[in-house]
Structures are given as structure tokens and as C-alpha cells.
């Protein structure tokens, strides 16, 4: 399983699983449901937060939390 935190800027993927229940709850209500297509669009400097495109808006989360998000790469896109 690949982690969201390890992706390169611009990569498109699908949400799979969030391994931290508290984080999962918070991200689910923001629309990060399993299978949802997302795209990593930006990384803040010095290991700061990352920004992802999810259901047509930009969401920023910490890199530390992105380590706990398992994703599946989308091929041929």
C-alpha cells in the first residue's frame, strides 16, 4: 500500500484507508471517503502541510497525518 505522504506533487489517486480512527472521522466528513479520487497538488516547504484536491475543493492536512492515509494509484490518466 502506498501512502499519501509519499506521493509526488500532481499524482492522482484513490482514497483507500485511514489507519487512525480519530483522523478518519474528521476526514470522512470532509468528503475523503473510500474510493474517492484525490490529487496531491502541493506541499508546504520545510515539511509543512500538504494540499490535496478532493471532490473539487482544496484541503490541506499535515504531512504527519498523510502518513496514515493509504491510497491506490490511478493508472492511465
Amino acid at each position: 500500500m502506498q501512502k499519501l505522504a509519499d506521493l509526488k506533487v500532481g499524482t492522482k489517486c484513490q482514497m483507500c484507508m485511514i489507519s487512525d480512527p480519530e483522523l478518519e472521522q474528521k476526514l470522512l466528513e470532509m468528503g475523503c471517503t473510500p474510493g474517492e479520487k484525490i490529487q496531491l497538488i502541493r506541499k508546504a516547504p520545510f515539511g509543512g502541510p500538504i494540499a490535496i484536491l478532493v471532490s473539487s475543493y482544496i484541503l490541506s492536512i499535515r504531512k504527519y497525518d498523510a502518513e496514515k492515509i493509504a491510497i491506490k494509484l490511478i493508472k492511465n490518466e
Binding site: L27, Y57, I58, S60, I61, D65
Partner: peptide, 11 residues
């Protein structure tokens, strides 16, 4: 308590 930073970046 754990700290979170989950924030929308509006257009």
C-alpha cells in the same frame, strides 16, 4: 490531546 490541522483552502 492530539493536534490536527485540517483546513479547506478556498478558491
Amino acid at each position: 490531546e492530539r493536534s490536527y490541522y485540517i483546513m479547506e483552502m478556498p478558491s
